[in-house]
């Protein structure tokens, strides 16, 4: 039995879609809540980012799970798309949907767009490839004071994650200045627009995805399903809203005025 033999059954495939989708969604929820801490302030936000970085092996486990989920989600969806195209080779001259929503009919396209967006997002912020000038900044925390200070002078001997006493007697702690990275990134209106559009597409995708996962996993009940469908839409809207609020706030100068 090979690992992809589940693809032989469309129902199992859909279950894989639902389960991996839920894993990715859980991550997205955490990511959104974490990111919203940017509104609290630079120290908290950078501390949060540092915390995530400092989890060691767990981080790799987490990354592996995410990567696997994303790969399974994508591979399965692409496979099913081709499978479905084959099942309906000839389209109608006129098509008139009664109930199918736009978001439900465009999952593969919004999915592909999200994958592209995700790739860009990783290249931009995680790997610092597209705009290395956004990711090069470090910040320093002074021990005891808890204050966040910016040192313009290079302190080459400081190593990330370690307290070091510098010549003027202060003990500093070096962190990546993720806050600044975000602000710099979103100050660029083009980049912000890419993010806003990307996040709207994510919301659009989720609008169908969440309630669809319930259905695939066999959870449909006349008393609860209307709430599940409504909840699915509301929830996707909130996620998108939360994520959009960051670039918008940066563009409007509500946060990051200092950068």
């Amino acid at each position: 039995m090979s690992i992809v033999s589940y693809l032989k059954s469309t129902i199992l495939s859909k279950i894989v879609m639902a389960v991996t989708g839920i894993i990715l969604l859980l991550f997205l929820i955490g990511h959104t809540l974490g990111n919203l801490q940017i509104f609290i302030g630079r120290e908290v936000f950078n501390q949060y980012a540092y915390f995530l970085q400092s989890t060691g092996e767990l981080l790799w486990v987490f990354r592996a799970v995410m990567l696997l989920s994303a790969i399974l989600h994508i591979v399965t969806s692409v496979y099913l798309k081709f499978y479905n195209l084959k099942a309906k080779p000839q389209k109608y001259a006129v098509t008139n949907y009664v109930k199918a929503t736009l978001s439900s009919r465009t999952m593969i396209w919004t999915g592909i767009a999200i994958a592209c967006f995700l790739a860009y997002h990783l290249l931009h912020f995680t790997f610092g490839v597209t705009n290395p000038e956004h990711t090069k900044y470090n910040g320093y925390v002074e021990k005891g004071a808890g204050l966040y200070v910016e040192y313009n002078m290079p302190v080459p001997e400081l190593i990330e994650g370690k307290y070091i006493e510098i010549p003027d007697g202060k003990i500093l702690f070096k962190q990546k200045d993720v806050y600044k990275m975000v602000i710099l990134g979103f100050k660029n209106p083009f980049i912000s627009i890419v993010y806003i559009i990307g996040v709207i597409i994510v919301g659009f995708h989720l609008n169908h995805a969440i309630q669809s996962a319930f259905q695939t996993l066999g959870l449909n009940h006349p008393r609860y399903s209307p709430s599940i469908i409504a909840g699915s839409s509301t929830f996707s809207f909130l996620i998108a809203l939360g994520l959009i609020s960051i670039p918008v706030s940066v563009l409007l100068g509500i946060i990051g005025g200092v950068a």
Partner: peptide, 14 residues
């Protein structure tokens, strides 16, 4: 050779 369900519910509607 029937396709997979993508939960769009057009079936129920018609």
């Amino acid at each position: 050779g029937f396709g997979a369900c993508t939960n769009i519910y057009e079936c129920e509607a018609v």
